[in-house]
C-alpha cells in the first residue's frame, strides 16, 4: 500500500514536471493576469476566493476495514493587506465538523518566474457528532507555520510546493459526559502540498493539488479517540475553482 502510494505520487510528480518542461513554445502570460490561491505572489486584487472540495483517504490503522475517502467542502479566501502582505483564510467544511484557519503571508518574488512565501496560520476545529447514539464533542487549536515555493511556467501554469508544520496546541474531546482527551502535541507532523493552478472555464482558474499529510493527529478523525503517537499518512486531493 505505502509502496503503491509512493509510486503513484512519484508518477504524478513526474507529470507535473513534464507540464513545465513541455510548455516552452507557448505564449507567456504575465503573472498579473493569472488568478491564484496557492501560488506565492503579492496580490494585485483586493480579494481572491476559491471554492472546492478535498478528499482525504483515511489510513487503515485507525479506520480499520473502512478504507474510505472523507470529502470536505473547501473555501479559501485571500485578502490583500499591504505590499507583499496578505491574509490567508481557509475553511474546511463537513457540517458536523469543521476547521477554520487564518494567518498572514508575506510573498517575495525571487525572479521573473520564481517566488516564495512564508506564513503562519492559526486553526480551530470543532465538531458535534452522534456516534452510535452517543453525542461526542470535540474542539482543538492548531498552528501551521508554512513555506511556499512557486514557479510560473510560461503556459499560464502555476506550480506551488508548500510545506507546513502541523502543531496541535489543544485537543479536547468528550463522549457523552466523559472527557476523553485533553492533549497537547506541539510537533504533530507535517504536510506537503503540490498545487497546480491554471485558467479554467470562463475567467476562472482551477486548482488541482495533492497534499501529503503525515501526522499523529488529523482533526477529521477526532471521533475515533485513538491514543496513537505515530505519524500516519493521510493523502489528500484538493480541487478548487478560483472565482
Amino acid at each position: 500500500m505505502n509502496h503503491s502510494y509512493r509510486k503513484g505520487i512519484q508518477l504524478v510528480l513526474f507529470f507535473f514536471l513534464l507540464a513545465g518542461q513541455t510548455a516552452i513554445k507557448a505564449q507567456d502570460v504575465p503573472i498579473d493576469h493569472q488568478k491564484r490561491i496557492f501560488f506565492p505572489y503579492p496580490m494585485d486584487r483586493k480579494w481572491s476566493t476559491s471554492v472546492g472540495f478535498t478528499g482525504t483517504t483515511m489510513p487503515y490503522e485507525i479506520t480499520e476495514e473502512l478504507h474510505f475517502r472523507m470529502p470536505a467542502g473547501d473555501v479559501h479566501i485571500l485578502r490583500r493587506l499591504h505590499n507583499k502582505w496578505y491574509l490567508d483564510g481557509h475553511l474546511s467544511l463537513q457540517g458536523l465538523q469543521n476547521l477554520i484557519t487564518l494567518g498572514p503571508r508575506i510573498a517575495i518574488p525571487v525572479s521573473d518566474r520564481l517566488s516564495m512565501a512564508a506564513g503562519n496560520d492559526i486553526g480551530f476545529w470543532f465538531g458535534i457528532i452522534n456516534v452510535q447514539g452517543v453525542k461526542t464533542k470535540g474542539t482543538g487549536w492548531q498552528n501551521y507555520p508554512n513555506l511556499s515555493l512557486g514557479y510560473r511556467f510560461n503556459k499560464r501554469i502555476l506550480v506551488t510546493l508548500k510545506a507546513e508544520s502541523i502543531m496541535n496546541i489543544g485537543i479536547n474531546t468528550h463522549a457523552g459526559d466523559i472527557k476523553v482527551t485533553t492533549d497537547y502535541r506541539l510537533f504533530s507532523g507535517s504536510a506537503y502540498t503540490l498545487a497546480l493552478e491554471q485558467p479554467f472555464y470562463g475567467k476562472k482558474s482551477l486548482t488541482l493539488a495533492f497534499r501529503a499529510i503525515y501526522t499523529n493527529f488529523y482533526w477529521q478523525t477526532w471521533t475515533l479517540f485513538e491514543p496513537y503517537d505515530r505519524n500516519l499518512f493521510f493523502p489528500q486531493i484538493i480541487v478548487g475553482i478560483i472565482l
Binding site: 512519484q10 510528480l13 514536471l17 518542461q21 515555493l149 514557479y151 510545506a163 506537503y192 503540490l194 505519524n231
Partner: peptide, 22 residues
C-alpha cells in the same frame, strides 16, 4: 529547466520518505 529539476528532486525526496511503521 534547472529549477524544474530541482523542484522535482525536492518533491521526490519528500514524498519518498513515507515511513513504514514497524
Amino acid at each position: 529547466m534547472k529549477i524544474s529539476i530541482t523542484i522535482l528532486f525536492v518533491c521526490l525526496i519528500i514524498f519518498s520518505c513515507k515511513r513504514n511503521f514497524e
